[in-house]
Deep mutational scan, measured.
Amino acid sequence: SGNANTETLPSGWEQRKDPHGRTYYVDHNTRTTTWERPQPLPPGWERR
Rank of each mutant, 00 (worst) to 15 (best):
G21Y: 01
S1W: 05
R48L: 09
W35G: 05
G44I: 04
P40Q: 08
G44R: 07
W13S: 03
P43L: 08
G2P: 09
R48D: 15
R16E: 06
P19M: 03
Y25K: 03
G12V: 00
L9F: 04
N3F: 07
G44V: 07
K17T: 12
Q15W: 05
N5A: 04
P38M: 02
P10Y: 01
D27C: 06
T30Y: 01
H28D: 06
D18T: 09
L9N: 03
P43W: 08
H20C: 07
D18S: 08
H20S: 13
W13Y: 09
Y24M: 02
R31N: 11
N5H: 06
E14R: 00
E14V: 05
L41T: 14
N3M: 08
T23M: 06
R47Y: 14
R22M: 08
H20W: 07
R31D: 07
S1D: 09
Q15N: 03
D27S: 02
G21W: 00
S11L: 12
R47S: 15
G44K: 10
Q15V: 13
P38T: 01
E14A: 06
G2A: 13
W45L: 14
P43I: 06
T23V: 12
G2L: 12
R48Y: 14
S11Y: 10
E7I: 09
S11C: 10
E14P: 01
N3W: 01
T8C: 10
Q15G: 06
R37H: 04
T33Q: 05
R47A: 14
W35I: 03
R48M: 09
R22Y: 05
T34Y: 04
R37F: 07
Y25M: 03
P40I: 11
D18N: 04
T33G: 02
E7A: 05
P40M: 13
S1N: 01
N29A: 07
R31Q: 14
T8L: 11
A4K: 15
E7G: 04
P19V: 06
E14K: 04
H20L: 13
R16S: 07
R48I: 10
N29V: 09
D27L: 01
T34N: 03
N3Y: 10
W45C: 15
R37G: 05
S1C: 09
T33W: 02
H28Y: 07
G12T: 03
P38G: 01
T23G: 02
R31Y: 08
L41C: 11
W45H: 15
W35L: 03
P19D: 14
L41P: 14
N29F: 04
R37K: 14
S1P: 00
W45D: 15
N5Q: 02
W45N: 15
R48K: 13
P38Y: 01
K17L: 09
S11A: 10
G12N: 11
W35T: 04
E36P: 00
R31V: 01
P19F: 07
T34I: 00
G12S: 03
G21A: 01
P10V: 03
T32P: 00
L9S: 05
W45K: 15
H28W: 07
R16I: 02
R47N: 15
T6I: 06
N5R: 10
T32Q: 12
P43G: 13
R22P: 03
R31E: 09
N29T: 08
P42I: 09
T32E: 05
P19H: 10
E46N: 10
T6Y: 07
W13I: 03
